[in-house]
Simulated assay, not measured.
Amino acid sequence: MTRTGLYAALAPQGVALLDTRHGRGHWRFLDPVGAQLWLEITRGSTPAHAVATLTARWEAKGADAGQVRTDLTALAADLDTAGLLLPAHRPDQRAEQPGVRFAAAAPAGVPTRLAGHAGLFGALVLLRCLPVRFALTAARATTRLPGRAATVAQAEAVFAAVRRAARWWPGRAACLEESLAAHFTAALTCHRVTWVIGARFTPHGAHAWIETEGHVIGQEETDRVWPYMPALKVERSH
């Protein structure tokens, strides 16, 4: 699929759309009915046909057809105005959720610590000074560097190095900056991790993290409610 800059996280609770075409990126959350409309249209139906199909489906369940049609027509127009009625890239969904490993004070050698500073600097410049699409381009470019997939211990050392480096930089490094920095740091130390941006639905929220060997690395035990569903993954193509 040609990249459109639009990414989707799908769940029974709806769909979360990440638009990376402008600025730092924008999330749009749709409930299950809105997600059905978006899926119908992006699979090839016209908005009018999709509205008619869903209206008939909900009328058969006892809903007021006029109200359903009005609401869906308004939503379709709103999504069209926002440029969101496009096919979105969706990462492959695993049968099982990855395990979540909490942040640990993992040991990191001098090369990894230095790489942590370089990785964080690159992430901060890209994410604070440029539109997010440049960060995505840089992250994808690093997947072409030589290296092996990081073990959990190696990924934890990388993440710990980024956390240590962040203490020396002004401002707060949020999950997006930390995770991208860890992705870069791993590449600089000849390792690979997967950079992931995703969303949750109850309550609505977005998050970014790294994964390796089927584990989410470096999470705060009291800070995040899982599961998050991935919308975008940056990893080496197989």
Rank of each mutant, 00 (worst) to 15 (best):
A9T: 00
A9Y: 03
L10F: 12
A11S: 13
P12L: 08
A16L: 06
W27L: 03
L37W: 03
G44L: 11
T46M: 07
T55D: 08
W58A: 09
R69D: 11
R69F: 04
A77G: 12
A77P: 05
L79A: 03
A82C: 04
L85C: 01
P98H: 04
G99W: 12
G99E: 11
G99I: 11
L114N: 01
G116N: 02
G119T: 08
L120S: 08
A123I: 01
C129P: 00
V132G: 04
R133T: 10
T142L: 12
T142V: 15
L145D: 09
G147I: 09
T151P: 03
V152N: 09
A155R: 07
E156F: 05
A157C: 04
V162E: 05
R164P: 09
A166G: 02
R167I: 11
W168S: 12
W169A: 07
A174K: 11
E178F: 05
H183A: 00
A187W: 06
A187Q: 08
A187C: 11
W195L: 10
H204Y: 13
A206T: 10
A206P: 07
E213S: 02
H215F: 13
G218P: 04
Q219V: 12
E221I: 12
R224T: 15
R224H: 14
W226F: 15
W226M: 12
Y228C: 03
L232W: 01
K233W: 06
V234R: 00
E235F: 04
E235W: 06
